[in-house]
């Protein structure tokens, strides 16, 4: 296992509110890492540092290092657009574009085009229709949605059920083949059946991607993750193999949380 993400002394401030305090942690390649903790503990804030989504929040200041493959993505000189292309994100509430299913998935590939090397020169061009069709099919298959929607790709993404919408959002993220995918409580708006489909999918995705999931459900973290980090009041209290965290927590706070005496 190699380390993909390494954060060092990560601090986040929302105006006077110190939301994340000195977080230093490692996230491994091709694993599912779960981030758990009570509401307001900074777990969402943490993963939003990784693809710089916190930039959108007025008054938010992020200090410290977020090394992704050795490159500090929190550096001012880094192109955030490029960071977000490489690090995908799936949100709490399914948010498909009010466009067709096909367009939802084809949007990002179209945006970025194909970069290829011809005669030693790097060139960017548009996708052909056939290439796009392939990407859409591959992404939808990977998100386990293809069979359900292949006959109605031209229907609006909003017409799908909640769980399908969330899988569409996953397919949309997969369409540009990111290295890392961040999931911000992806199942909190879904029913149990849709949730279990997404969980299966997440476990399957770790073969090809590094997956980080924020969840308020300890059961979910225990079911799907390899490693778990516990956050409390803006600090990372403990991180370790999921089994160890749930069976033999080292810190008292962690134990209180997972045994339900705090939350």
């Amino acid at each position: 296992m190699t380390t993909t993400i390494h954060t060092e002394d990560l601090n986040v401030y929302f105006e006077r509110n110190h939301a994340l305090i000195d977080v230093t942690m490692d996230i491994q390649n091709n694993q599912v890492t779960a981030v758990i903790g009570p509401s307001g503990c900074g777990k969402s804030t943490f993963i939003r540092c990784i693809n710089r989504m916190n930039d959108l929040i007025p008054g938010c200041v992020v200090k410290g290092k977020v090394l992704v493959d050795g490159e500090d993505v929190n550096d001012d000189k880094v192109d955030v657009v490029d960071v977000r292309r490489r690090i995908g994100m799936v949100f709490q509430k399914p948010n498909p574009f009010p466009k067709s299913i096909y367009e939802n998935v084809a949007y990002a590939p179209r945006l970025h085009g194909v970069t290829e090397v011809v005669d030693g020169k790097v060139r960017r061009r548009k996708h052909t229709k056939k290439e796009l069709d392939e990407i859409v099919e591959r992404s939808l298959r990977r998100a386990a949605l293809w069979e359900e929607v292949k006959d109605r790709l031209d229907k609006s993404g909003m017409s799908l059920s909640g769980g399908q919408q969330q899988r569409l959002c996953i397919a949309r993220t997969l369409s540009i083949d990111p290295e890392i995918i961040l999931f911000d409580e992806p199942c909190s708006a879904l029913d149990p059946i849709a949730t279990s489909k997404i969980e299966d999918l997440l476990v399957d995705l770790k073969k090809d991607y590094t997956v980080i999931i924020v969840t308020h459900s300890m059961q979910q973290a225990a079911r799907i993750s390899d490693r778990t980090a516990f956050f409390y009041l803006g600090k990372m209290i403990e991180m370790g193999d999921t089994k160890q965290i749930f069976e033999r927590p080292q810190m008292e706070l962690t134990e209180q949380y997972i045994t339900g005496r705090m939350g």
Partner: peptide, 27 residues
């Protein structure tokens, strides 16, 4: 136009103007 649409687009690596032009303005 809800913020979630902007976030979805930006998270896919669209620039600010692409987000406005492709998503915010059409809706």
């Amino acid at each position: 136009v809800p913020q979630s649409v902007r976030e979805a687009s930006l998270a896919l690596g669209a620039t600010k103007w692409q987000t406005i032009w492709h998503h915010v303005l059409p809706y």
